[in-house]
């Protein structure tokens, strides 16, 4: 469904974040991207929904050229791609309800929504999304009154409102403790399996990768150094991706 061809991103300062990266994603995959911080994972995910404009290369989704899209067309593509962030990126001073409704903005009349008017069925849909994630009792709380795990669930509910075909998750559990990490990833897995939503997710921990991923891509300095099944990642591969120094720290995660 998603095809990335010769993707390159050079930042204005001269930093090369991605170098000639190509891969394909099939419908229904749970693709995990691994790599050190600064290896280009976040840049890659943000190029897919064009929060960052790539320098060279082409990304297509179901035949539509994402890299060439502009204005309304780009927004139309974006609303089909949900995104989940490491720091949740909720509007802290707004209520949970408003935050979830924000996910629907791409579908709504821009003028009415700018005035703060949302149709009743959208509010109902938001309620259902929150109920699905088990936090329907927090509807009227302010976002910053919630715990980290709850905030990330609000982030997922916001994504659900988009009725996405693809979800990009940028280290969704890096700010959470391991128990919460599993619960968040289980929600993503549920979306992936039950709703047939394709997921591209960046992760750090090997146990999580082997538990949830259907396929893995490894990045190092913006270059693809690994592509295969999670079971194919062994100590050597891991060392290749994370570098020599990482070996000792990561080794425990591997065994």
């Amino acid at each position: 469904m998603l095809k990335v061809e010769h993707l390159t991103k050079v930042y204005p300062g001269g930093t090369v974040a991605l170098k000639d990266l190509s891969f394909e994603v099939e419908d229904g995959e749970f693709l995990v991207v691994i790599g050190l911080s600064g290896s280009g994972k976040s840049t890659l995910l943000r190029c897919i929904n064009r929060l960052i404009d790539p320098t060279e290369g082409k990304i297509t989704m179901d035949g539509a050229d994402i890299t060439a899209a502009k204005g309304a067309e780009l927004r139309h593509i974006r609303r089909q791609i949900g995104m989940i962030f490491q720091h949740f990126n909720l509007v802290k001073r707004s209520s949970v309800m408003t935050n979830v409704l924000n996910g629907r903005l791409g579908y709504l009349n821009p003028w009415l929504s700018t005035m703060g008017i949302f149709p009743a069925e959208e509010k109902k849909r938001a309620q259902q999304a929150l109920a699905r994630l088990g936090i329907e009792d927090k509807v009227h709380s302010r976002a910053d009154e919630l715990s980290g795990g709850q905030q990330q669930r609000v982030g997922i509910a916001r994504t659900l409102m988009q009725e996405p075909k693809l979800i990009l998750a940028d280290e969704p559990v890096a700010s959470l403790d391991p128990v919460l990490a599993h619960s968040i990833l289980q929600y993503l897995e549920q979306l992936n399996k039950d709703d047939k939503v394709t997921v591209i997710c960046s992760l750090h921990y090997l146990d999580l990768i082997q538990r949830y991923a259907t396929r893995v891509i490894g990045l190092k300095d913006g270059v693809k150094v690994f592509e295969g099944l999670p079971s194919e990642i062994n100590r050597v591969k891991f060392k290749e991706i994370y570098g020599e120094e990482a070996q000792d720290i990561r080794a425990t995660a591997l065994e």
Partner: peptide
């Protein structure tokens, strides 16, 4: 992080 911001809390009637 989670300061209480009274004015935006929906009045719990």
């Amino acid at each position: 992080m989670a300061k209480k911001h009274k004015i935006f809390v929906q009045p719990l009637s």
